[in-house]
């Protein structure tokens, strides 16, 4: 199986917390598209109007730190983002992202990538091609169980499969 993800890059810095991704006042929302309409509202208000389906976020260290709110990866996913690449992720955000089917990739050399670069992610090969810069980066694949959950479309379809096997 080959999963290819293509998109242009939006850059964020270190320690972007889930409250900056989706402010606390919107956490009563559950509709993913309604959440997406407020993504990065306070810290990057231009993001919503510039993002296109399939685009990729590239961030620094500790992306998604803070609250466990899953509204954060949801808002990102339903804004059209196909993958988040970061130097590192906060633990709960990383699990949440994969659990809802948003690809999260750890890439220590993420700072080589710039805003508006065009990337192709070759998931199973653990490679990212930067077409703008003519570079290629290798990343370590996540544990098999996370790939299985992601490939199933998230933890709900994955759990459905698990429950079916048990019956």
């Amino acid at each position: 199986m080959t999963t290819e993800i293509k998109g242009k890059v939006f850059c964020f810095g270190d320690d972007i917390d889930t409250g900056q991704i989706i402010p606390g006042s919107y956490v009563v929302l559950t509709d993913p598209y309604e959440l997406a309409s407020h993504v990065f509202e306070d810290v990057a208000p231009e993001f919503r109007s510039q993002v296109e389906q399939g685009d990729i976020i590239v961030a620094g260290k500790n992306f998604g730190t803070g609250s466990s709110r899953e509204h954060a990866p949801k808002a990102i996913k339903y804004a059209g983002i196909s993958a988040v690449i970061a130097k590192s992720f906060s633990r709960i955000f990383y699990r949440n992202a994969i659990n809802i089917g948003l690809l999260a990739i750890v890439l220590p050399e993420a700072d080589k990538i710039s805003k508006a670069d065009r990337l192709t992610i070759l998931l199973e090969q653990g490679k990212i091609r930067n077409h703008t810069k003519g570079e290629e980066y290798n990343f370590a694949l996540p544990p098999q169980i996370m790939l299985d959950i992601f490939n199933a479309g998230g933890i709900i379809p994955y759990t459905l499969n698990v429950l079916k096997t048990r019956c």
């Binding site: 466990s68 899953e70 709960i92 659990n99 933890i155 709900i156 759990t159 429950l163």
Partner: peptide, 29 residues
């Protein structure tokens, strides 16, 4: 589902925070 669930480790247990969808999986299994 609270990230600060870790505080319950004060009682010598393993306590950790998880997200909403993961919790739905825990409720089922």
């Amino acid at each position: 589902t609270d990230s600060h669930t870790v505080g319950l480790g004060t009682f010598g247990c393993l306590a950790t925070g998880i997200g909403s969808t993961e919790m739905a999986g825990v409720l089922a299994t």
